[in-house]
Design a binder for these strands. Structure first.
Lengths: 242, 242
DNA sequence: ACGCTAGGTGTACGGTGTACGCCTGTCAAC
DNA sequence: GTTGACAGGCGTACACCGTACACCTAGCGT
């Protein structure tokens, strides 16, 4: 009999590894998910993980799968456009539950069955609306990462290293206003919306749905207009004469 | 006198470092741009670089600046929509000159003057068309990374590690067709376009312009319809009744 | 009772970014 | 001239990363 049976934690399996990785990323950020860090979190030696996961890339691919596993399918009674919209927003909800998920999706090059499944579902939703395979393909491209429920984080502030003195801040603001007036303008426009927002922040959910609807409505218009790829352009150019 | 004057390469400066980094990335990929690798490329010890660049993140930010410096401004005679379109496509051309640039832009969290300048120019183009700051803001968000001339690489194949045997391939294809029929369908649609393309590849330039025009045309429609954020939706939902 | 094997261990290698201190060539001011 | 500051390149060192390889061991089917 082994002396005092050291609290033999139950054996690992792939699922336990993945869930632990997700939990670790949730509480300490994606950067904390190193093979060593994760192993320690599981009370195990780093190389043990490689018995369940091929390499780090597959690990984060698996983490993405776990997150995407929580996507609930849309109400089947919905029309095609709303169904696609709902599915994408469901993906968004799943992704937003884990702050690190966007970055992980972007980083992972893997095309897992879960990922393909979601893509297939979205494409199927468009096809169900009668869009041709061709148009569906282009719309999928147009949606881009929005299929996953997020758009690229263009406007995120990286938090200044050293909080500048008021004078510096004043001077920087002045120079900024002079060099980038339009960026300033739209930033201001974003803050004076409904309610007094914190500086620089804007309603990301609204921005997302705005873009999503812009694309889906555009797709619907093209479809109704009988668009085919022969035209090689969504609509006529703005210049009225050819 | 120093013996035989060892071929004293001229002193480094920030610009030389950045250009060397770009050249190195061009010929050996972004992964080859490590502080050590770049230093060796310059015939210098790694730590020497830190006299010209704060850290690696700033280095790649600087590389992005170099690439984005090559964006030529659009013909001032163009209408606002075409001007924005042209500017974005110019950014795309600049980025596509360097295969690593997409990834670098995504990776870099820095908001350099060059980056802000481009954003400001695009926003200014929309404002010049009469769009309100508010609508301009939303459209900028909708454009997302397309401002930089690329959309997320959703459909890129990571090249299978071990080329499978024909039987395996057959079996995989069969299962794929069953599980992801719509993905398969649109992939096929992409290949049987104009000319016989290589498998899986599609005309990325067309996809890009398709999405870009879908968004710009949508923006124009909203603007002409006098859109304000009060509506909180680009257009009426597809269900006709409220 | 035996041996196979799945799974956890230990060590080691080559890579990374970068903090810290030294050393030296250049140049301005005395 | 001589001096002293200082910009810029050098060397060492640290902590961390992913992972290849060999080994050991518990548990199980035969």
């Amino acid at each position: 009999m082994p002396p005092a049976a050291p609290p033999r934690r139950e054996r690992l399996d792939r699922d336990r590894v993945l869930r632990a990785a997700v939990a670790l990323a949730d509480e300490a950020g994606l950067a904390a998910v190193s093979m060593r860090g994760l192993a320690q979190h599981l009370g195990v030696v780093p190389m043990a993980l490689y018995k369940h996961v091929a390499d780090k890339d597959e690990l984060i691919g698996g983490m993405v799968d776990v997150v995407l596993g929580g996507i609930e399918p849309p109400d089947p009674a919905l029309g095609w456009k709303d169904a696609v919209r709902e599915r994408v927003l469901a993906a968004r909800r799943a992704v937003l539950r884990h702050p690190w998920a966007r970055r992980a999706i972007e980083a992972s090059t893997r095309r897992t069955p879960v990922v393909l499944g979601h893509m297939d579902a979205v494409a199927g939703g468009l096809r169900a609306g009668g869009l041709s395979p061709d148009l569906t393909h282009h719309v999928m491209h147009a949606l881009g990462n929005r299929i996953w429920g997020f758009s690229p984080e263009l406007f995120e502030e990286p938090a200044p290293a050293h909080p500048p003195t008021p004078e510096e801040q004043e001077a920087m603001a002045r120079e900024f206003a002079q060099r980038f007036p339009h960026v300033l303008e739209i930033a201001v426009a974003a803050t004076e919306g409904d309610l007094g927002r914190v500086g620089g922040g804007c309603d990301e959910q609204f921005e997302f749905e705005f873009a999503l609807d812009l694309l889906l409505d555009g797709a619907e218009r093209l479809h109704r207009a009988g668009w085919t790829s022969a035209a090689r352009r969504p609509v006529a150019r703005s210049s009225q004469r050819p």
